[in-house]
Design a binder for these strands. Sequence first.
DNA 1: TTTATGTATTATATCACTTAATACATTTAG
DNA 2: CTAAATGTATTAAGTGATATAATACATAAA
Lengths: 131, 131
Amino acid sequence: MKEIHVGSMRFSLDPGQPLYEQVLAHIRSAVARGELPLGARLPSVRELAQALQINPNTVMRAYRELEREGLAESHGSQGTYITRDAGRVEAVRRDLAAAAVAAFLAEMERLGFTLPDVVRMLQERSDADTP
Amino acid sequence: MKEIHVGSMRFSLDPGQPLYEQVLAHIRSAVARGELPLGARLPSVRELAQALQINPNTVMRAYRELEREGLAESHGSQGTYITRDAGRVEAVRRDLAAAAVAAFLAEMERLGFTLPDVVRMLQERSDADTP
DNA sequence: TTTATGTATTATATCACTTAATACATTTAG
DNA sequence: CTAAATGTATTAAGTGATATAATACATAAA
């Protein structure tokens, strides 16, 4: 899994997982954690495709999904830009986190762990992490 | 998503997700939480396939994976049985939980949440759950 | 005018998943 | 002994998501 740098972003793609989803997730997390500032210009479709050695259509698909989520806006021939709506970014961040938490807890409960069990496990890990 | 009862197990399959993985996950969680006792006999391949309205090969694939994990054993023409090795079950349960935790934390960190952040979120949910 | 951009279309390829249709050996039940 | 149920194996085919390829067009900036 080679790391590819494009602008301020680092990509590491895993063939075997959908590429457009990985590109999407990379950019999304870059926005969520502020690595990509509001209003930042994304690499052009062709440019990113070239850098990642994937098809432009695959990048387009990721960009379209970013637009659908309200994280990016296409400015015609000027390029694609991260939204300037900080609230939108925060909302997406929250939604994704909520979804991750829900899926995680569901999985843990399937394995027979209760919510307090899970809290305890993570608590311990947190303690071990910062002693 | 219709619920189908087979013996002591309830199945609800979602076309669009790999069927063999769903069958696998259902049985795995049934074992992990003790719903399926040690040494229990699983439905025959044909029987389960018939009940779930899927192909016997698909069930076979799930059963083979259960064997690979050490959760089930094929007893030839007598059927397929859950292992009697309680330690093995517990180990699988632990492994699956550890994997789920790792994946979850990685995802949350991608979204810019630290481990203490996550602990706090789940803590709050736990408090709200049991007031 | 040239260039870079987003966008769209059509075709093809690949791969995982699923179904289908049998077939065989072994064990249990009658 | 016979019949039935079981796990197992094989071969073929179908389906859908994903990805690539090759173009094409309109717009805006240089």
